[in-house]
Amino acid sequence: MNNLRYSKNHEWIRLEQNEKNKAYIGISTFAKKELGDIVYLDVENSIIGKEIKEGKVFGTIEAVKTVSDLFMPVSGYIIEINKELLSKPELLNKNSWIIRIKMLDIKEYNKLMSLEEYKKYTTII
């Protein structure tokens, strides 16, 4: 089962295997290619334990080409930030997660795009 879903803002979300209401969030390969080399990640520690609604900004990412907001693909409580990325943002150029969350509503996750749907979406934008 592929439990990876994508948002229109180019974030991905992956459910944890044994806990279906917990998930990891990162940015898609498409987004990384569009951004170029990532040089800085700004996700404040103050968001840990906070609820952030779907579509709201949880941080920013700076790349050689531009600065971009990071949006929550689903509503949830922030459990953890991948602290390694704060000192080594270039690791995001690989497939690293940015935050770990506890989702509030699985229906939001189910509405996100599958990989096939996301590939079609990125060819039309």
Rank of each mutant, 00 (worst) to 15 (best):
N2E: 15
N2L: 14
N2R: 13
L4V: 15
R5L: 05
R5T: 07
Y6H: 14
S7P: 08
S7L: 10
E11S: 01
E11K: 03
W12P: 00
I13P: 02
I13V: 12
I13M: 06
R14S: 11
E16D: 15
Q17I: 13
N18C: 05
E19H: 10
E19P: 05
K20T: 13
K20L: 14
A23Y: 01
A23H: 00
Y24W: 09
I25E: 09
I25Y: 07
I27R: 00
S28H: 11
S28A: 12
S28V: 07
T29E: 15
T29Y: 14
F30N: 09
A31D: 04
K32S: 03
K32G: 00
K32T: 05
K32N: 04
K33H: 14
K33M: 13
L35V: 10
G36M: 04
G36L: 03
G36V: 02
D37W: 07
I38L: 06
V39T: 14
Y40C: 10
L41S: 01
D42Y: 14
D42K: 15
N45M: 12
S46R: 13
S46A: 14
G49I: 03
K50F: 00
I52Y: 05
I52T: 08
I52Q: 09
K53I: 02
K53C: 02
E54F: 03
G55A: 08
G55R: 02
K56P: 06
K56N: 14
K56V: 11
V57N: 10
V57I: 15
V57A: 08
V57Q: 11
F58H: 04
F58V: 07
G59I: 06
T60C: 12
T60V: 14
T60N: 15
I61V: 15
E62P: 00
V64P: 03
V64S: 11
V64I: 12
K65N: 10
T66E: 13
V67L: 02
D69A: 12
L70E: 03
M72R: 04
P73T: 06
P73D: 04
S75P: 03
I78T: 03
I78H: 01
I79N: 05
I79W: 01
I79S: 02
I81W: 01
N82P: 01
L85S: 05
S87W: 10
S87R: 12
K88D: 14
P89M: 04
E90H: 13
E90N: 13
L91W: 06
L91I: 06
L91D: 09
L92Q: 03
N93W: 04
K94F: 12
K94I: 09
N95S: 13
N95G: 12
S96P: 06
W97I: 04
W97V: 02
I99R: 01
R100N: 01
I101W: 04
M103I: 02
M103G: 00
L104R: 14
I106E: 12
I106H: 03
K107G: 07
K107C: 07
E108V: 00
E108W: 00
Y109V: 06
K111G: 09
M113F: 08
S114L: 11
S114W: 10
E116S: 12
E116Q: 13
K119E: 15
K119G: 08
K119L: 15
Y121F: 15
T122W: 01
T123Q: 14
I124C: 03
I124M: 07
I124L: 08
